[in-house]
Design a protein around this nucleic acid. Structure first.
Ligand SMILES: [Mn+2]
Ligand SMILES: [Mn+2]
Ligand SMILES: [Zn+2]
Ligand SMILES: [Zn+2]
Lengths: 137, 137
DNA sequence: ACATACTTTAGAATAATTATAAAGTAGTTA
DNA sequence: TAACTACTTTATAATTATTCTAAAGTATGT
């Protein structure tokens, strides 16, 4: 096991999961990439299982994604279609939504001139912006 | 039929729907209020049917809400729980999300110092902010 | 090897939503 | 008004995303 595998395994261990084959493959698939990955569990399952003779079960995908999310290695978000999306970029950041396509906007690309106060008894956890796009013309 | 009913009926007609009893009641329930109403179809159905002897069917709730939404009388949005929410405030505006509770923030309460350009070939349709809240301490 | 704890998986169950098709209602025409 | 037509409501079935369950598999410690 090389050094790189270690980080995938660490994410599993810190999520309370033993690094089984299935889980390590899922973790690699999710985190072994340069760019942010936005996905649904179904998309993840289909794209990973397409290439495999021995399929990983739906339950394992859901369990693994949930554990990674609970441990803070994935963030959950929502489009307007009753499905959960997950984001490998766990920092607070913004998005372009372009007809179902999701693109990250780094946090420092948007700054505020004016923001409201939190209601009393509450404080602000984070502020995230969605910029919805449409085609020119 | 008084002047007020007319606006509920107009919303139905402009959504391509005949103003049947069921639809007029739904439209009144949605739009006959001072404050913005954020709801799921199930919530709408349960709160309206609770008071009624003759229940309105699930399909009628879904059909009516969808038609009102398509005509632009309702806006759809999503929390992180695979259910569609609807908003009687159809203007572009912002929200506080506070553990499942949704509160409107008027558009002019948030202004930007810096915003990214739209990718080429695209333009910005709208910019909406979610401020997530947590309890103090 | 045996015990124990954790894991994977197929399949059942649930929740939100959408589709279907029969029965009801309304508007129009003869 | 009777007949015709188009639209509507509803119960129910189907679908989709997700969660649950329980049996069979795997790993680890003694
Ligand atoms: Mn759904
Ligand atoms: Mn769901
Ligand atoms: Zn992102
Ligand atoms: Zn709102």
């Amino acid at each position: 096991m090389n050094n790189k595998n270690k980080t995938f395994i660490d994410k599993l261990r810190s999520s309370g999961l033993r690094p089984t084959n299935q889980r390590v493959e899922i973790s690699k698939f999710l985190f072994n990439r340069k760019k942010t990955f936005h996905f649904t569990v179904e998309e993840l399952k289909n794209s990973m299982n397409l290439k495999r003779s021995k399929k990983i079960s739906t339950a394992t995908f859901y369990n693994t994604v949930h554990a990674l999310k609970s441990a803070g290695h994935l963030k959950e978000f929502s489009l307007e279609n009753n499905t959960s999306y997950y984001d490998t970029n766990i920092t607070s950041h913004h998005h372009f939504f372009d007809n179902g396509k999701v693109i990250d906007i780094k946090s420092d690309k948007i700054t505020f001139q004016k923001l409201p106060e939190a209601p009393k008894g509450k404080k602000i956890k984070n502020v995230e912006v969605v910029i919805r796009l449409e085609n020119n013309n």
